[in-house]
Simulated assay, not measured.
Amino acid sequence: MHLAPRGQPDTLTAHFEFPNRTFAGPAVISVDEVNLGKQLSRLHLTLWQGGLMSKPPWVDQSASRRTVLAYTTHADLRNFTGISLPTGYEGREAAALPTLPDFEALKASGRDGSWEEPKIPESSPWPRASWTCGYASPAGEPITKDTLAYVVDSFPYNMHTFLAAPELRQLLLSQPDPDGETKEKKAQRAEVKERDEQRAGLWFPTVVMNLEAKTALPVEGVEWLAVRVTSKQIKDGKFDMEVIVRDVEGEMVALSHHVAMIVSLERNTKKRGSSKASL
């Protein structure tokens, strides 16, 4: 919106830092024009919450918190011109779409035989953001360029089971064999089950997130996107994620990389203390 008058309505890249936890409620975004160019422009954005004012300057820097910091690069992706070349990545398995689901069946029942919409336990105190987006069926409104950052930072409740090593996932999903399992295997299964049961009390906050748009989404938005998420290491309460987003035709829409943590959900839900600004 800020750069639309300059003919640069699309976000090409975005880097987000999360110095404080956000909450559902009013916010103010301040915009600093770092560099305004003919093809690319750069902004420094700060999202403020708490201690907001009803008139300019809108933010009380002694009381408000910086909850998100971002550097963004903007352009008009529909009018980008230049050389195009195929890459070796395009021929790899990771570049291919999975088997497309029966979208109508997913919308009707949440499953189609191959795909299934993950459910959050009703008793879970999980933050409301996790209930907003459907990960197998749509969220009820088109996905547009304005919500792309939300898409790459939103994941199914049971995401941890997909990021785990295949042998651990198999232990988690398979039924125990009382007669055919060694003591070591039983102990390993019990440990994996315990970790999975702890999920309801865990929060996976994003520390840093980078986003690169590869293709401009239609102005009216799309109903479905294919999101592939991989992690190279989950260790000591922190992990990385690589996110690849494609449309239903297989064209790459966006790339994203995250650094995230695994902490107690109480860190998100406990009462906030002093509202003094901090980084």
Rank of each mutant, 00 (worst) to 15 (best):
E249F: 00
D32I: 09
L172P: 02
G110W: 02
R6N: 11
A105C: 06
A96N: 12
L47M: 15
S123W: 02
A4P: 01
E197S: 12
R66T: 08
I262N: 07
R65W: 03
D179I: 05
E181V: 02
S30M: 04
E242S: 13
P19T: 01
L97C: 07
L265I: 14
V222N: 02
A277T: 03
K55E: 13
K271Q: 12
W203Q: 01
S264C: 11
A165G: 03
K186Q: 15
P56A: 11
P127L: 15
V227F: 08
S64C: 04
P57D: 03
M53P: 05
S256V: 08
R169I: 03
S274V: 10
A139F: 03
E212I: 05
K193A: 10
P56G: 06
D179F: 05
G50K: 02
P138A: 06
K238R: 15
Q175T: 00
G25V: 08
F204L: 07
G7K: 13
I262H: 04
E184N: 04
T81L: 05
A164P: 00
G237W: 09
S41V: 07
G134I: 03
D60V: 04
N35P: 05
A260H: 03
K185L: 12
A260L: 08
P127A: 10
L47P: 04
S275I: 02
R246K: 10
T215W: 00
V68K: 07
K107M: 15
T147E: 09
G50N: 09
G25K: 12
R78P: 09
P121E: 07
D240N: 11
G201A: 02
V222W: 04
S84A: 10
V152N: 04
G273L: 10
E181P: 03
M209G: 10
C133S: 14
Y150E: 15
F18R: 05
L148G: 06
G250N: 00
L225F: 05
R228F: 06
P9K: 08
N158F: 04
H44L: 12
V208I: 11
K119Y: 01
S114Q: 10
A260Y: 01
R199G: 07
V192R: 01
V31E: 09
M1C: 05
W203V: 06
A70N: 07
T46V: 08
K55R: 13
G237Q: 09
L36W: 03
E117K: 02
A70R: 03
Y89I: 00
A27S: 14
D10S: 10
V207P: 01
K183M: 13
G237F: 11
W224R: 03
